[in-house]
Structure formats: structure tokens, C-alpha cells
Amino acid sequence: MSIFLEACRSLLKPKATLRYPLGGKDLLQIPDGYRGKMALKREACIGCTICEKDCPSSAITIITDQKGKRPVFYLDRCMFCGQCKESCPTKAISFTKDFENASYDRKTMEVR
């Protein structure tokens, strides 16, 4: 009987389904500290390569640019565990709230 009353109440309540992809990105509330696409503070990075060694899914490779060594993140392999941020001695790596990373092109899934 209680489930019948609950069902009647539910008929009047707003729907719980979020029409996410068609209703727009604003429907979802992404909390602070969400682990989305990562960002690198280039000036803080010292090129120590610890992040490359610690990455569990080998999603980081180290390249050399004009300022020295720096990591490149491959989002197609990344599992967003956050270990690179943990391991970084200078806190150069941070995570943004950007979660819509799927793409047809692998080139767009690199964070340089």
C-alpha cells in the first residue's frame, strides 16, 4: 500500500531523468575537485619525470621543448586516477572540470 501512495506522489513530482546530452551541459553539476581533463602549469614543471614513472596506464610521455623536459598526457589511455597530481613534487599538474573528452580524433585527446 505504501508503494501505491509513493507511486501516486511520484506522478506529481518532477521527473528524475536528466536529459543530459540534448538538454545541455549545464544540467550536470560537477563538484569542485572533480578529476576531468588535466592541465599543466608549464612554468612550475621541472621535468623530473616522476609522473611518467608512476602513471599506472602509461598515459604520460616526456618530450623536450625549448624550456626542457615536460610531460604530454594522452587522454585515450588515461583513467583519471590522479596519481600524477599526487606524485608531482611542484604541484604543476591539476585537474579541470572538463569531462566531455570523447572524440573521433586521437590528436585532440592529447594534453600538451
Partner: peptide
Amino acid sequence: AAMQRRIGPL
């Protein structure tokens, strides 16, 4: 669907 607070066919 409405009883379950879903939208149903849309």
C-alpha cells in the same frame, strides 16, 4: 515511467 519518475518515450 511516470510512476517511476522517469520520462518514458520522448
